[in-house]
């Protein structure tokens, strides 16, 4: 080894030191963005971020909702007052696309939501800050006992929503909606807030773990419940099954009979 080569080697080692430093810095930066971001979001609950959400929510409200519900939530042309309805109502109505309402109908139908989850949270924070009411549920809402949920669902929900969540008719054109598209948050919020015709289920009547069990049962129905016969047919039971058996079965029998009776 000569002296020049040793100098080059030392220079290379210095350069590689910079490179390692650069690498380490960018790695830390990436790690921070990957894992640090949730930490910063978790701080949203701090008073200042909460008031930011309320402010943002008020902006959204004034733009999209105040025409019907009034500039100060007092209600008005076609819309009820929103004071005291709580964030859970906002989650149910907006996340399921029922609000904003597109036309004057007997009952708001489910649509594609107009707002993102973040915007819905801001709206909910604004409504919650004005009069309180049922709060937006948090955590894993479908983390409940499936069997208990089934029993509670059949006792409390099935009379309107059908034992398999297929929905059903109410009076004067109103209806209990089917539950197949409802997210866990929407289901839980509906029980909390009692939207439209639906009764409200307070936390003394159905404990939070019981509500989670019901939510778990509905998500099970929507995502996991098997259809041993191949098709659920709306899970309406013998009505739709009988119809299919008659239409398909009798047609097949008639065709078979015709074929047997046909000459060779």
């Amino acid at each position: 080894m000569t002296s020049t080569s040793s100098a080059r080697a030392s220079r290379r080692s210095r350069m590689s030191g910079y490179a390692v430093l650069l690498l380490a810095l960018s790695l830390v930066g990436t790690l921070y963005t990957a894992f640090g971001a949730p930490a910063s979001q978790a701080q949203d609950a701090s008073p200042s971020n909460q008031s930011m959400a309320v402010k943002e929510g008020r902006e959204l409200y004034l733009t999209g909702c105040s025409t019907c519900h009034g500039l100060n939530l007092e209600g008005g042309a076609g819309g009820p007052s929103l004071i005291g309805v709580g964030g859970a109502s906002v989650v149910f109505q907006v996340e399921s696309g029922r609000m904003p309402l597109s036309a004057g109908v007997q009952q708001a139908p489910r649509k594609t939501p107009k707002y993102s989850i973040a915007e819905i949270d801001q709206l909910a924070a604004y409504i919650q800050a004005n009069g309180g009411g049922p709060e937006v549920p948090e955590g894993d809402l479908a983390d409940g006992d499936l069997q208990l949920g089934g029993a509670l669902f059949r006792t409390n929900c099935a009379s309107c929503h059908n034992f398999a969540g297929s929905g059903g008719a109410l009076t004067y054109g109103k209806y209990a909606p089917e539950l197949s598209q409802a997210s866990a948050r929407v289901i839980y919020s509906a029980m909390q807030s009692g939207p439209e015709s639906m009764p409200r289920y307070g936390d003394n009547q159905l404990l939070p773990e019981e509500k989670k069990a019901i939510t778990r049962y509905i998500t099970y129905l929507n995502e996991e419940a098997p259809n041993p016969g191949g098709a659920g047919l709306g899970r309406y039971g013998p009505i739709s099954e009988g119809l299919v058996a008659w239409v398909v079965g009798i047609t097949a029998m008639v065709a078979l009979t015709l074929w047997i009776g046909a000459r060779a």
């Binding site: 009692g194 009764p199 289920y201 003394n204 009547q205």
Partner: peptide, 8 residues
């Protein structure tokens, strides 16, 4: 008190 208003 178990039932809120609008509950059954």
């Amino acid at each position: 008190g178990d039932l809120v208003i609008g509950a059954v």
